[in-house]
Amino acid sequence: MTTANQNAVERYRNNFLKEVEANVEEGDMVKMCMQCGVCAGSCPLGPHWEHSPQKIFMMIRAGKREEVLSSDSMWMCTSCYNCIVRCPRQLPITHIMHGLANYAHRLGLAPKGQPTREFGTLFWNNLVKKGRVNELTLTIGHYFKDGIAAGIKTGLAMQAVGLGMVKAKRLNPMEIFGGHAVKDLKGFHAMVAKAQEIEAKKKGFTA
C-alpha cells in the first residue's frame, strides 16, 4: 500500500463519501445522485462498464472504497458528456469519473495495464515535455507500450494509415527530433510543477 493511500485510509476511516468529497474533483456533488440511471443508459461505452456511474455513486455512499478505486469502469469514459447534459440533478458526472480515475491512479489503486490509464499518462507526459502534444512520439509511445515486438506488430498493422497521414502532410516524421514547443518552456515547467505541488499537498498525495 502506498503511503498516500495508507494516510487516506486512516484519515477517513469508514467514511469513503467524505474522502471523495474532499479529494476527488467535483466529488462534493456525489451525494446529489438520486439513482435514476439515466447516466448508465446514456453512455456510449455503457455495456463495457462493470459499474455504471449510478452504481459507482451508490458504492461510494456504501463505503466500498476498494471496489470503487480499483474499478476499470471510470476508465471507459470517452468524455462525450452525454451523462452530464442528461442528468436530472445536474451532477458533473464526466468530471467526477475523471476525478475518481485520477485519484485511484495517484493512490496506486487503479487497475495495472488499463489501456486508457496508460494512454492518458503517456498523453500528459508528452504534452508537459514541450508544452504541446507531439503526435508522432505520442503514437509511437502508445504502440510500443507493451514492448518492441508488440510495437512493431501494431506499427506494421497501422502502416498504411501512418503513410497516408504523412502523404497528406498530417504527420511529420521529423517530429521525432523535437517538433513544436512553447518558447517559455522553463516558465511552463515551473508553473506545472507548482500546480502539482499545491494539489499534492491539498489532497494528501505527499506526506
Binding site: 474533483e25 470517452t78 468524455s79 475523471h98 476525478g99 480515475a101 485520477n102 491512479h105 495517484r106 486508457t116 490509464r117 494512454f119 492518458g120 499518462t121 498523453f123 500528459w124 507526459n125 504534452l127 502534444v133 506545472v192 500546480a195 502539482q196 499545491i198 494539489e199 491539498k202
Partner: peptide, 12 residues
C-alpha cells in the same frame, strides 16, 4: 484535452 486528467489531475 480529454485524457489529460489521468496523470494531470485538476489544478495542473
Amino acid at each position: 484535452a480529454s485524457v489529460g486528467y489521468a496523470e494531470g489531475g485538476e489544478l495542473p
